[in-house]
Nucleic acid binder design. Structure first.
Lengths: 213, 213
DNA sequence: CAGAGGCTATCGATCGATCGATCGAACGTC
DNA sequence: GACGTTCGATCGATCGATCGATAGCCTCTG
C-alpha cells in the first residue's frame, strides 16, 4: 500500500475542509475521498470535530517549530522579521489547504477544543510581536501602532494561501522575498535589506512540509 | 414595527452566516434569530442560497459604489490609493459580519450564482489595480510585482474584519489612516502623504452603511 | 505443524436527529 | 372577499455516528 488509510483520511479531510468547509463536508464525502466506507473512517478518528482539531494541532505545531528553528540564534530584529515573513509565506504557498483550514475553521470548534488551538496560534504570533517590538525599540522599525501593524502583516501574509498558484509567473523564492520587502517597508525599515537567510527557510519548509521548495 | 420582517431576516442571515458559516447555519437558526417561523422565512427569500447571493450582491455593490464615489475626480494615484485603502478599512471595520460573509462564503455558491459575484469583486479590485499601475507608471510607487502587491494589500485590509473591535484603543479614523500609511510605505511611496480626504471617506461610509463614523 | 484465539481493518445496514423546503390554513387589514 | 403575513405540521433527504459481522494476519499453544 503506497499510503496508509490513516494518511488518506487525513489528506481527504484537509482537502475537503479547505474547499468545502467543515460543515459543508459530510462524513460520506470524506469516506469517498479517502476510498473507505463511512464506517471505516471511525477506525482512524474520533468524531469529525476531533479530526479537525487534530489537523489544526499538527499544522500549527509544525509552523511554530519551523518558525522557532528558522529564527534561532538571530539577534537582528530586521533579519528575524524577514525570516518570519518568508517562512510564513512559503508555508502558506506550499500548503494552502491546510492553512485555510487552520485560518477559517477555528470558530467551528467547541470552546474546549478551540482553546489549545488558539494558544498555539498566540504562541506563534508572539514570535512576530517580539521581533517587531524589538525592532521598534532598536529604532530600526517605525510604526505608531506595532500591534495593529503586526495583525495587518499577518493577514497580508496569510492571504497568500487564498490566491497563490504554483502555475503563476512568480517562483516561490521571489514571492517570499517580495513579501519580506513589503513587510520591511510597511514597518518603515530604513536599514538595508540585511542578510536574512532565505535558503535556510527553504530548507526548513522542505523538511517540515515534505516538499521540494 | 421598528424593523420589518424582511430586514430582520437579512440581518439574521448576515449575523449567522458570518459567525457560523453558511453550512453551519440552519433554516431554524435563521428563523429563531429573525423571530419568525421557519416557514415564514420563505415569504421573504427564495432558497437559502438565494439569500446568501442577495447579501453578497448588495454588499459588493455598496462597496463598489462607495469606492467610485470616493475616488471620483481624483487624478493623483497616491491620494486615490490611500482613499481606497481608507474606505476599504472603514467598511470592514463598521460591517465586519457582512464583509466576512462576502470574503469567506463565495465558494459555497453554485457556479451560476457565483459568477456575477466574482464579476463585482473583480470590478472593485480593478479600481485598486488602476491606481497602483498609474502610480508605478508615474514613478510615485515602486514595486517589482504590482499585481502581487495589490493582492497583498487587499488581504491586509480585508483582515481588519477578522480582528477589529470598536472597543479597542484605536479610533476608526486612526485605523484608516494607519492602514493608508502601511499601504503607501509598502508601495515604496516616496512623496509626502499628500491630501487624501479621509473625512470624505467617513461621510460616504456613514451614508452608505447607515452608521455614524 | 495444526488450529484456536485475538487483533487490525474493513464493510453493509441502520439508527435517531436534523436538514431545506412545502403545504394548507388562519390571521388581520383594507 | 382579496391580500399580505404568519404559522403548525410535515415531507423526503441527508446528517453524524454506531452496530454486528467478516476477512486476513500474527501469535501462542499443544
Amino acid at each position: 500500500m503506497a499510503v496508509s488509510s490513516r494518511e488518506r483520511v487525513r489528506a481527504a479531510a484537509v482537502k475537503l475542509f479547505a474547499t468545502k468547509g467543515f460543515h459543508g463536508t459530510g462524513i460520506r464525502d470524506l469516506a469517498q475521498e479517502a476510498e473507505l466506507s463511512s464506517a471505516s473512517l471511525y477506525h482512524y478518528m474520533g468524531t469529525k470535530e476531533d479530526l479537525l482539531a487534530e489537523i489544526m494541532h499538527t499544522a500549527l505545531n509544525r509552523l511554530l517549530d519551523a518558525a522557532r528553528e528558522a529564527t534561532a540564534g538571530s539577534t537582528d530584529p530586521v533579519a528575524r522579521l524577514r525570516t518570519l515573513v518568508a517562512l510564513h509565506v512559503l508555508a502558506h504557498a506550499v500548503g494552502p489547504a491546510e492553512t485555510r483550514v487552520v485560518d477559517n475553521e477555528v470558530d467551528v470548534l467547541s470552546p474546549a477544543a478551540r482553546e489549545p488551538v488558539v494558544a498555539l496560534r498566540d504562541a506563534y504570533e508572539h514570535l512576530w510581536a517580539a521581533a517587531i517590538d524589538e525592532g521598534v525599540a532598536a529604532g530600526v522599525f517605525h510604526t505608531a501602532h506595532p500591534a495593529v501593524t503586526r495583525l495587518a502583516l499577518l493577514e497580508m501574509c496569510s492571504g497568500v494561501a487564498r490566491w497563490y498558484s504554483p502555475r503563476g509567473p512568480l517562483a516561490l523564492d521571489q514571492l517570499a522575498e517580495h513579501y519580506a520587502d513589503l513587510a520591511s517597508r510597511a514597518l518603515g525599515c530604513t536599514s538595508p535589506p540585511g542578510v536574512h537567510d532565505l535558503n535556510r527557510c527553504r530548507e526548513i519548509v522542505a523538511k517540515e512540509w515534505g516538499v521540494s521548495v
